[in-house]
């Protein structure tokens, strides 16, 4: 069966909420039902039929063709099946997904993977701020699953991360791992200021020594490499990176000592 495909007809005038376009949300709907789904939220809200040409049948395999920074909440609550977007998306892609796979071939806006607890979200382009992070008012970020950004991520990547893995391949902005509680964030490329600020536990893994580290992280010298080796092998096996991130003798900082200070920043030496 051909993938259920939503082809964007033109750049939408208003922001669209695509949270309904998931396998669970579309199961059992007729073509007409789907065309009539309201996805706009302005004074004259658009429906699916206004914005997309819809072809194919397989709701387990959804493709959104063309992209727009105005399409928000793609793959919200995704539990199983696959969604692929051939271009860019707006904010909150993969919001609260629990399983399945969401592939964004372009860039994503803010809060990609916000509150996700399972599944795999891969962004081939860049991601905005608060990758995997909580929305305003929420107090937990990502709680599981795997989030991969092949480009850069903005500020506050992995804010309040609780479980799961975030991998960012071309660097990130300030406050990576802000207030993180547990879980792992791996970054290759340049990392902005004060990663791990207010982190309680968890691991930040960098392919270089961080330039602007908060003074509430202190050097722990060399570290036990069992974990780093294991994690490197995992990232390679998952085809996230093609050579080891941390190397044979990574350095280690512990912090944030302003709180309980049980988090760690591991980094590759000699770069």
């Amino acid at each position: 069966m051909k993938a259920l495909t939503f082809s964007l007809l033109a750049e939408p005038e208003e922001r669209l909420d695509l949270s309904a376009l998931t396998p669970a949300g579309l199961a059992g709907l007729t073509d007409l039902d789907i065309a009539r789904l309201r996805i706009g939220s302005g004074r004259q809200p658009a429906t699916v039929g206004d914005v997309f040409k819809v072809t194919g049948r397989n709701v387990e395999n959804i493709v959104i063709e063309g992209g727009s920074t105005r399409i928000d909440k793609v793959g919200t609550g995704l539990a199983l099946g696959a969604i692929r977007v051939t271009g860019a998306v707006g904010s909150q892609a993969g919001r609260q997904m629990t399983g399945g796979s969401l592939l964004i071939e372009g860039s994503a806006g803010h809060h990609a993977g916000s509150g996700m607890s399972g599944g795999r979200l891969e962004i081939k382009g860049n991601a905005g701020d608060c990758l995997g992070g909580p929305l305003a008012g929420e107090i937990t970020g990502m709680e599981g699953g795997m989030l991969i950004v092949r480009g850069k991520a903005g500020n506050y990547a992995g804010e309040r991360l609780r479980r799961g893995i975030i991998a960012i391949l071309r660097g990130c902005g300030d406050y990576a791992g802000y207030r993180m509680i547990a879980g792992t964030i791996a970054v290759t490329g340049r990392v902005g200021a004060t990663p791990g600020y207010l982190m309680k536990r968890g691991s930040l893994l960098f392919d270089r020594r961080p330039e602007f580290l908060a003074p509430t992280f202190i050097d722990c010298g060399e570290t036990d490499i069992a974990f780093s080796g294991l994690f490197d092998r995992f990232l390679i096996r998952e085809k996230i990176i093609d050579r080891p991130l941390l190397g044979a003798s990574p350095g280690k900082f512990g912090g944030d000592l302003a709180v309980s200070g049980k988090g760690e920043i591991l980094f590759r030496r000699g770069r």
Binding site: T194, Y197, L198, L213, A214, P215, T216, F217, I218, D219, D256, L257, A258, G261
Partner: peptide, 16 residues
């Protein structure tokens, strides 16, 4: 950063 150092210091934790 200064706020962090103060907070850590008031809990008798060493900082960089």
């Amino acid at each position: 950063s200064v706020l962090g150092v103060l907070r850590a210091g008031l809990q008798n934790r060493a900082t960089a």
